[in-house]
Design a binder for these strands. Structure first.
Length: 469
RNA sequence: UCCCCGAUAGCUCAAUUGGUAGAGCGAGCGGCUGUUAACCGCUAGGUUGUAGGUUCGAGUCCUACUCGGGGAGCCA
């Protein structure tokens, strides 16, 4: 784009341009420092890279006194000038301004919510519309994008098809927690049946409908036709969870592979995590250096180590054994047949192995009906990928492809078999062994950036009592 | 939802056993300087989260609520 006869470039491109180039930059002021030698330094960012660029504004600019000396953090400007090698330390190049046009001033600098000082993440969450202007949240936005693209690229390179599974579901049987209702009925005065219950036959879909808690059941149908598929979409859980790693609305990646068993599934999970971490370290080196320096020292080493070394695989039964034999005092006793507590998972990843661990073959009693029953008839072919600091980042399994075994599991758990008619059809017509997993995208971003709270790695977090913006 | 902790200036925090609110940063003005977490001076800025209660007197004690943090459960 041309502006005043000078080419407008992104700041990340400006850093790569040759000194002597005449360019135009547009962005938002981060800081302004004046020198009585008759010039001001303006740090300008436009979101295209971690570092702001330094603008040098001499006092011979016509609007120096009237406007430039009044620029504050947050003001938007356009700058034409010549890229020159910097005389000062701290940056290689800077833009010597020949013209600065003020696009938007900050109305009241005294109350601008993200002034040039350190702010707590809790506070910035309250100004989520302005926090992307800070270096941390700009970096998070770029990392989110990079990870999203890496996920798609990973699957595309392996001939997986991206399947758009529905957001609204009328299955009341997905069994992954509380669901949000979707309805057009009058909530204050819904139609009633003769028995006095809400008559959902009169609702939009003719039956109860909810927001999806997982795309898995739907994506299995495409897996059993296209062989390798995945979904990557919004997912909703109405659980009253108040933790640093749960959201009511989050994005989940769910691949599903046909003619595959749990070992194939675990390999896919490992390959995928390594691919996206490596891609992130390569493509967003600037932001990762920032997270490593300011958010979580050692982050880059941790991710590099994960990329370079094989994941540990450990059956649940052996994990229980390790926990029982450890001298560590746990608040909850470890017993075969019960789910591991957070403290147990943390011990394994953070103290015992100090690396990600894939736990496999859990007792059937604590896992979902669709997970394939192992030959011991006590465990199922399930896996959890546990990482230090966060815990479960991936949950997956080989699916039960044998109709008689699936039916037995549905009965055992007291689930309504009729509701699963189309899911059961997959086992009646050309069934195949298949497997898949769910990766919580925000947990991936959390782990990749070292951010402590999941509400800070999604632009506008939804959680209990939190739906502002 | 449960347990623990917290809420004081735009932001981050102080304020002895209950006795009428202070600093730093940010902001405005001035000084100094090719500056970059700049530095120095001055100024403005607060019904102490909300609603009750105890007391001569409450930022401080009590109760409820709201919101936030840490941990737990549910999970991704």
């Amino acid at each position: 784009m041309k502006e005043s006869g000078v080419e407008w470039v992104q700041i990340k491109e400006a850093f790569k341009a040759k000194p002597g180039s005449r360019i135009s930059l547009k962005g938002w002021v981060r800081t302004r420092r004046d020198s009585k030698a008759g010039l001001s330094f303006i740090n300008l960012h436009d979101g295209t890279c971690q570092d702001p660029i330094q603008i040098v504004a001499l006092n011979d600019l016509p609007n120096y006194e009237s406007e430039i000396l009044h620029l504050n953090t947050g003001c938007s400007i356009e700058v034409d000038g010549e890229l020159v090698e910097s005389q000062g330390k701290g940056q290689s190049v800077e833009l010597r301004a020949s013209e600065i046009r003020v696009v938007g001033m900050v109305e009241d600098p005294d109350t601008y919510p993200v002034s040039a000082k350190r702010h707590s993440f809790e506070y910035l969450r309250e100004v989520a519309h302005l926090r992307p202007r800070t270096n941390t949240f700009g970096a998070i936005a770029r990392v989110r994008h990079a990870l999203s693209m890496a996920v798609h690229r990973f699957f595309d390179e392996r001939e997986f098809y991206y399947v758009h599974t529905p957001i609204i579901t009328a299955n009341d049987c997905e069994g992954a927690g509380q669901m949000f209702r979707v309805s057009t009925l009058d909530a204050l005065n819904p139609p009633r049946t003769e028995a006095g219950e809400v008559d959902f036959e009169q609702d939009f879909f003719g039956k109860e409908a909810h927001l999806t808690v997982s795309g898995q059941l739907n994506v299995e149908t495409y897996c059993c036709a296209l062989s390798r598929v995945y979904t990557f979409g919004p997912t909703f859980r109405a659980e009253n969870s108040n933790t640093s790693r749960h959201l009511a609305e989050f994005w989940m990646i769910e691949p599903e592979i046909a003619f595959a068993d749990l070992a194939d599934d675990a390999r896919l999970a490992e390959d995928m995590l390594k691919y996206v971490f490596k891609d992130l370290l390569d493509r967003r080196a600037d932001d990762m250096a920032f997270f490593d320096k300011r958010i979580k020292p050692g982050l880059i080493d941790t991710l590099t180590h994960i990329v370079e070394s094989p994941f540990l695989r450990l059956p649940y039964t052996e994990a229980v054994d390790i926990l029982q034999k450890s001298s560590k005092k746990f608040e909850y006793k470890v017993e075969w047949g019960t789910d591991l507590q957070s403290e147990h998972e943390r011990f394994l990843t953070e103290e015992h192995f100090k690396q990600p661990v894939i736990l496999t073959d859990y007792p059937k009693g604590i896992k979902a009906f669709y997970m394939r029953l192992n030959d011991d008839e006590k465990t199922v072919a399930a896996m959890d990928v546990l990482v230090p600091g966060i815990g479960e980042i991936i949950g997956g399994s080989q699916r039960e492809e044998r109709l008689d075994v699936l039916d037995q599991r549905i009965d055992e758990m007291g689930l309504p078999k009729d509701e699963y008619w189309w899911y059961r059809d997959l086992r009646r017509y050309g069934t195949v062994p298949h497997a898949g997993f769910g990766l919580g995208f925000e947990r991936l971003v959390q782990f990749s950036t070292g951010m402590a709270n999941i509400r800070d790695v999604i632009p506008f977090p939804r959680a209990p009592k939190q739906a502002e913006f």
